[in-house]
Design a protein around this nucleic acid. Structure first.
Length: 165
DNA sequence: TAAGTGCGTCGTT
DNA sequence: AACGACGCACTTA
């Protein structure tokens, strides 16, 4: 990862990490102390700066419950084919809609890999933009979330998803 | 109903 | 060989 840039939002300061190939990962607010290790967008290459603006715009849209629109190229090198397959499937879930882990597994042609899908969701390096929060357990159970279930509930609430009691 | 246990499954380390 | 952000079937109150 060559560049780490802060993205201020109404929910706090996210941090986007870029390599020369694209967006590598997105960190939730509070994942590092006071934007430590971040750089100024003024100091990075024009290419990274362009990706940064795309990321910031997409994030802003996503955080009000809309579609993110055009995303910057994403650098999934060192990620497995299976994971990328899962993440691609997640991007097809519209805001405000949800799928179960089993449904996602079926949608990529591996109906028995439900648990592996859970693992792939947990390994999602670009949360929010790759909406792993829209994947719930069967019967509308909440399931898990790497960054904490509070974030998952928050993101779903923003999209108007009502969970079963 | 609600809560708990056991186990098949499969990608990842 | 072991471990999950799962999902069922199957107990027990």
């Amino acid at each position: 990862v060559l560049n780490s840039l802060p993205i201020p939002t109404s929910l706090g300061e996210f941090v986007a990490n870029y390599s020369g190939r694209g967006l590598v990962s997105l960190e939730f607010p509070g994942s590092r102390r006071g934007g430590d290790g971040c750089e100024s967008s003024q100091l990075v290459s024009p290419q990274v700066r362009r990706w940064y603006f795309l990321t910031a715009l997409a994030l802003e849209k996503a955080l009000v419950g809309g579609r993110p629109g055009t995303l910057p190229p994403m650098d999934f090198s060192s990620r497995t084919e299976f994971q990328q397959r899962v993440w691609r499937a997640l991007r097809r879930i519209a805001p405000g809609r949800t799928m179960s882990y089993a449904e996602v597994a079926a949608s990529i042609g591996k109906p028995k890999a439900t648990r592996a899908v859970g693992a792939a969701c947990g390994a999602n390096p670009i949360p929010v933009l790759i909406p792993c929060h829209r994947v719930l357990a069967a019967r509308q159970g909440l399931g898990g979330f790497s960054a904490g279930l509070d974030w998952k509930r928050k993101l779903l609430a923003i999209e108007g998803v009502r969970l079963e009691a």
